[in-house]
Amino acid sequence: MNETFLRTEKLSALFNGERVVKNVTITFQKNKVTAIMGPSGCGKTTLIRCINRMHELIPGAATTGKIFLYDDEIGSINPILVRRKIGMVFQKPNPFPTMSIYENVIAGYRLNGFHLSRDEMNATVEESLRKAALWDEVKDVLHRKGTFLSGGQQQRLCIARALAMKPEVILLDEPTSALDPKATSRIEELIVELKDAVSILIVTHNTAQAARVSEYTAFMYLGELVEFGSTKKMFTVPENSKTEEYLMGKFG
Protein backbone atom coordinates (compact mmCIF):
# COMPACT_ATOMS: atom_id res chain seq x y z
CA MET A 1 0.00 0.00 0.00
CA ASN A 2 2.31 2.72 -1.23
CA GLU A 3 1.18 6.25 -1.65
CA THR A 4 3.30 9.04 -3.02
CA PHE A 5 2.83 12.19 -0.99
CA LEU A 6 5.91 14.22 -1.83
CA ARG A 7 7.81 14.53 -5.08
CA THR A 8 10.32 16.77 -6.75
CA GLU A 9 10.44 17.58 -10.42
CA LYS A 10 13.75 18.55 -11.99
CA LEU A 11 14.76 20.25 -8.76
CA SER A 12 18.01 22.18 -8.85
CA ALA A 13 19.48 24.19 -6.02
CA LEU A 14 21.98 26.92 -6.63
CA PHE A 15 24.36 28.62 -4.32
CA ASN A 16 25.84 31.83 -5.71
CA GLY A 17 25.19 30.52 -9.21
CA GLU A 18 26.81 27.16 -8.55
CA ARG A 19 24.49 24.17 -8.84
CA VAL A 20 24.77 21.99 -5.76
CA VAL A 21 21.66 19.91 -6.51
CA LYS A 22 21.20 19.02 -10.16
CA ASN A 23 17.88 18.15 -11.75
CA VAL A 24 16.68 15.78 -9.08
CA THR A 25 13.35 14.09 -9.73
CA ILE A 26 12.30 11.81 -6.92
CA THR A 27 9.13 10.56 -5.25
CA PHE A 28 8.69 9.82 -1.56
CA GLN A 29 6.23 7.31 -0.09
CA LYS A 30 3.88 8.04 2.75
CA ASN A 31 4.64 6.47 6.13
CA LYS A 32 7.99 5.14 5.01
CA VAL A 33 11.51 6.02 5.98
CA THR A 34 13.56 7.23 3.05
CA ALA A 35 17.28 7.66 3.51
CA ILE A 36 19.29 10.07 1.43
CA MET A 37 22.94 9.16 1.54
CA GLY A 38 26.12 10.21 -0.16
CA PRO A 39 29.53 11.62 0.58
CA SER A 40 29.74 15.03 2.20
CA GLY A 41 29.16 17.87 -0.22
CA CYS A 42 26.93 15.77 -2.48
CA GLY A 43 23.93 18.04 -1.95
CA LYS A 44 21.85 15.72 0.22
CA THR A 45 21.31 18.26 2.99
CA THR A 46 20.58 21.00 0.47
CA LEU A 47 17.97 18.74 -1.14
CA ILE A 48 15.93 18.37 2.04
CA ARG A 49 16.41 22.05 2.90
CA CYS A 50 14.74 22.81 -0.43
CA ILE A 51 11.76 20.73 0.59
CA ASN A 52 10.88 22.93 3.58
CA ARG A 53 12.21 26.04 1.87
CA MET A 54 15.01 26.58 4.36
CA HIS A 55 17.55 26.66 1.54
CA GLU A 56 16.33 30.04 0.32
CA LEU A 57 17.20 31.65 3.67
CA ILE A 58 20.91 31.54 2.89
CA PRO A 59 22.08 34.63 1.03
CA GLY A 60 22.93 33.76 -2.56
CA ALA A 61 20.72 30.67 -2.62
CA ALA A 62 18.19 29.91 -5.36
CA THR A 63 16.17 26.95 -6.65
CA THR A 64 14.63 25.88 -9.95
CA GLY A 65 12.17 23.07 -10.61
CA LYS A 66 9.19 22.06 -8.57
CA ILE A 67 8.28 20.27 -5.37
CA PHE A 68 4.80 18.94 -4.71
CA LEU A 69 3.30 18.04 -1.37
CA TYR A 70 0.24 16.05 -2.51
CA ASP A 71 -1.13 18.41 -5.16
CA ASP A 72 0.20 21.68 -3.80
CA GLU A 73 3.30 23.14 -5.36
CA ILE A 74 5.46 24.21 -2.44
CA GLY A 75 6.89 27.24 -4.19
CA SER A 76 3.41 28.78 -4.40
CA ILE A 77 2.69 28.47 -0.67
CA ASN A 78 4.03 30.85 1.92
CA PRO A 79 7.22 29.27 3.28
CA ILE A 80 5.91 29.69 6.81
CA LEU A 81 2.93 27.46 6.08
CA VAL A 82 5.17 24.97 4.29
CA ARG A 83 7.43 24.68 7.31
CA ARG A 84 4.53 24.05 9.65
CA LYS A 85 3.58 21.01 7.56
CA ILE A 86 7.14 19.77 7.14
CA GLY A 87 9.09 19.35 10.35
CA MET A 88 12.84 19.38 10.56
CA VAL A 89 15.47 18.09 12.97
CA PHE A 90 19.03 19.30 12.66
CA GLN A 91 22.54 17.85 12.97
CA LYS A 92 23.17 19.36 16.36
CA PRO A 93 20.38 19.25 18.94
CA ASN A 94 19.03 22.78 19.22
CA PRO A 95 16.40 23.10 21.94
CA PHE A 96 15.52 26.72 22.73
CA PRO A 97 17.77 27.58 25.68
CA THR A 98 15.38 30.07 27.23
CA MET A 99 12.47 27.60 27.33
CA SER A 100 11.63 24.63 29.55
CA ILE A 101 11.20 21.13 28.14
CA TYR A 102 7.44 21.65 28.16
CA GLU A 103 7.70 24.99 26.38
CA ASN A 104 10.11 23.56 23.84
CA VAL A 105 7.62 20.88 22.81
CA ILE A 106 4.80 23.33 22.20
CA ALA A 107 7.13 26.05 20.91
CA GLY A 108 5.69 25.64 17.42
CA TYR A 109 2.26 26.63 18.70
CA ARG A 110 3.39 29.31 21.09
CA LEU A 111 5.73 31.06 18.66
CA ASN A 112 3.17 30.91 15.90
CA GLY A 113 0.60 32.51 18.14
CA PHE A 114 -1.84 29.55 18.24
CA HIS A 115 -3.80 29.51 21.44
CA LEU A 116 -4.37 26.11 22.94
CA SER A 117 -6.24 25.38 26.13
CA ARG A 118 -4.19 24.05 29.02
CA ASP A 119 -5.63 20.56 28.50
CA GLU A 120 -4.81 20.62 24.82
CA MET A 121 -1.29 21.76 25.58
CA ASN A 122 -0.77 19.06 28.22
CA ALA A 123 -2.11 16.43 25.85
CA THR A 124 0.07 17.60 22.96
CA VAL A 125 3.19 17.68 25.12
CA GLU A 126 2.60 14.23 26.54
CA GLU A 127 1.69 12.70 23.19
CA SER A 128 4.69 14.21 21.41
CA LEU A 129 7.14 13.24 24.14
CA ARG A 130 5.74 9.70 24.20
CA LYS A 131 6.12 9.42 20.45
CA ALA A 132 9.69 10.66 20.77
CA ALA A 133 10.30 8.04 23.51
CA LEU A 134 11.29 10.74 25.96
CA TRP A 135 8.20 10.96 28.17
CA ASP A 136 9.31 8.50 30.86
CA GLU A 137 12.66 10.23 31.23
CA VAL A 138 11.42 13.79 31.52
CA LYS A 139 7.84 13.64 32.81
CA ASP A 140 8.96 14.79 36.27
CA VAL A 141 11.22 17.59 35.06
CA LEU A 142 9.02 19.14 32.37
CA HIS A 143 9.63 22.61 33.70
CA ARG A 144 13.38 22.45 33.71
CA LYS A 145 15.37 23.95 30.86
CA GLY A 146 15.77 21.67 27.85
CA THR A 147 19.47 22.36 27.78
CA PHE A 148 20.00 20.32 30.97
CA LEU A 149 19.28 17.08 29.08
CA SER A 150 21.95 14.88 27.55
CA GLY A 151 22.73 15.26 23.85
CA GLY A 152 20.61 12.26 22.87
CA GLN A 153 17.69 13.42 25.01
CA GLN A 154 17.96 16.91 23.55
CA GLN A 155 17.76 15.47 20.05
CA ARG A 156 14.66 13.46 20.97
CA LEU A 157 13.22 16.65 22.47
CA CYS A 158 13.79 18.32 19.10
CA ILE A 159 12.01 15.41 17.41
CA ALA A 160 9.11 15.83 19.86
CA ARG A 161 9.04 19.54 19.06
CA ALA A 162 8.74 18.74 15.36
CA LEU A 163 6.12 16.03 15.97
CA ALA A 164 3.97 18.33 18.09
CA MET A 165 3.06 20.33 14.99
CA LYS A 166 1.59 17.11 13.50
CA PRO A 167 3.56 17.49 10.28
CA GLU A 168 3.11 15.43 7.11
CA VAL A 169 6.77 14.56 7.13
CA ILE A 170 9.85 15.05 9.25
CA LEU A 171 13.18 15.86 7.68
CA LEU A 172 16.11 14.55 9.70
CA ASP A 173 19.41 16.13 8.74
CA GLU A 174 22.11 13.74 9.99
CA PRO A 175 20.34 13.66 13.37
CA THR A 176 22.91 11.42 15.05
CA SER A 177 26.14 12.93 13.80
CA ALA A 178 26.71 14.80 17.06
CA LEU A 179 25.72 11.85 19.31
CA ASP A 180 27.50 8.91 20.88
CA PRO A 181 26.74 5.32 19.68
CA LYS A 182 24.26 4.54 22.46
CA ALA A 183 22.23 7.71 21.87
CA THR A 184 22.45 7.02 18.14
CA SER A 185 20.84 3.62 18.46
CA ARG A 186 18.01 5.07 20.58
CA ILE A 187 17.28 7.56 17.83
CA GLU A 188 17.43 4.87 15.17
CA GLU A 189 14.95 2.69 17.08
CA LEU A 190 12.73 5.73 17.42
CA ILE A 191 12.82 6.41 13.69
CA VAL A 192 11.64 2.88 12.94
CA GLU A 193 8.82 3.20 15.50
CA LEU A 194 7.75 6.57 14.21
CA LYS A 195 7.07 5.73 10.61
CA ASP A 196 3.51 4.58 11.32
CA ALA A 197 2.74 8.06 12.56
CA VAL A 198 4.68 10.20 10.16
CA SER A 199 6.72 9.95 6.95
CA ILE A 200 10.45 10.39 7.43
CA LEU A 201 13.29 11.60 5.25
CA ILE A 202 16.68 11.08 6.80
CA VAL A 203 19.93 12.44 5.47
CA THR A 204 22.98 10.41 6.46
CA HIS A 205 26.50 9.81 5.33
CA ASN A 206 26.51 6.57 7.26
CA THR A 207 25.53 3.72 4.91
CA ALA A 208 24.96 1.30 7.78
CA GLN A 209 22.47 3.70 9.30
CA ALA A 210 20.62 3.98 6.01
CA ALA A 211 20.48 0.17 5.83
CA ARG A 212 19.24 -0.12 9.41
CA VAL A 213 16.40 2.39 9.39
CA SER A 214 15.11 2.96 5.88
CA GLU A 215 12.84 1.24 3.40
CA TYR A 216 13.94 3.40 0.50
CA THR A 217 17.32 4.87 -0.18
CA ALA A 218 18.48 7.60 -2.50
CA PHE A 219 22.16 7.84 -3.33
CA MET A 220 23.46 11.24 -4.36
CA TYR A 221 26.83 12.11 -5.74
CA LEU A 222 28.12 15.52 -6.82
CA GLY A 223 24.61 16.98 -6.71
CA GLU A 224 23.02 14.31 -8.87
CA LEU A 225 20.62 11.57 -7.88
CA VAL A 226 22.59 8.49 -8.89
CA GLU A 227 20.25 5.76 -7.75
CA PHE A 228 16.95 5.50 -5.94
CA GLY A 229 15.00 2.44 -4.90
CA SER A 230 14.24 0.03 -2.12
CA THR A 231 16.96 -0.14 0.47
CA LYS A 232 17.12 -3.92 0.39
CA LYS A 233 17.71 -3.93 -3.34
CA MET A 234 20.27 -1.13 -3.31
CA PHE A 235 22.37 -2.75 -0.64
CA THR A 236 22.31 -6.18 -2.28
CA VAL A 237 22.31 -5.51 -5.99
CA PRO A 238 23.06 -1.86 -6.71
CA GLU A 239 22.41 -0.91 -10.31
CA ASN A 240 25.02 1.81 -10.59
CA SER A 241 28.73 1.17 -10.26
CA LYS A 242 29.16 4.45 -8.31
CA THR A 243 26.65 3.22 -5.73
CA GLU A 244 28.52 -0.01 -5.42
CA GLU A 245 31.85 1.75 -4.97
CA TYR A 246 30.33 4.02 -2.31
CA LEU A 247 28.74 1.12 -0.42
CA MET A 248 32.08 -0.68 -0.47
CA GLY A 249 33.69 2.35 1.10
CA LYS A 250 35.86 3.28 -1.86
CA PHE A 251 35.15 6.99 -1.47
CA GLY A 252 33.27 9.40 0.74
Binding site: N52, M54, L57, I80, L81, V82, R83, R84, K85, G87, M88, F90, K92, N94, P95, F96, P97, A107, G108, L111, N112, G113, C158, R161, A162, M165
Partner: peptide, 15 residues
Protein backbone atom coordinates in the same frame (compact mmCIF):
# COMPACT_ATOMS: atom_id res chain seq x y z
CA UNK B 1 20.91 26.67 14.79
CA UNK B 2 18.34 28.35 17.07
CA UNK B 3 17.18 30.59 14.29
CA UNK B 4 16.89 27.54 12.00
CA UNK B 5 15.00 25.56 14.63
CA UNK B 6 12.48 28.35 14.91
CA UNK B 7 12.12 29.02 11.19
CA UNK B 8 11.75 25.29 10.54
CA UNK B 9 8.71 25.28 12.83
CA UNK B 10 7.15 27.79 10.48
CA UNK B 11 7.67 30.69 12.84
CA UNK B 12 7.78 34.02 10.96
CA UNK B 13 11.06 35.90 10.79
CA UNK B 14 9.94 38.74 13.04
CA UNK B 15 8.63 36.37 15.73
Amino acid sequence: TLREASLALGVPYST
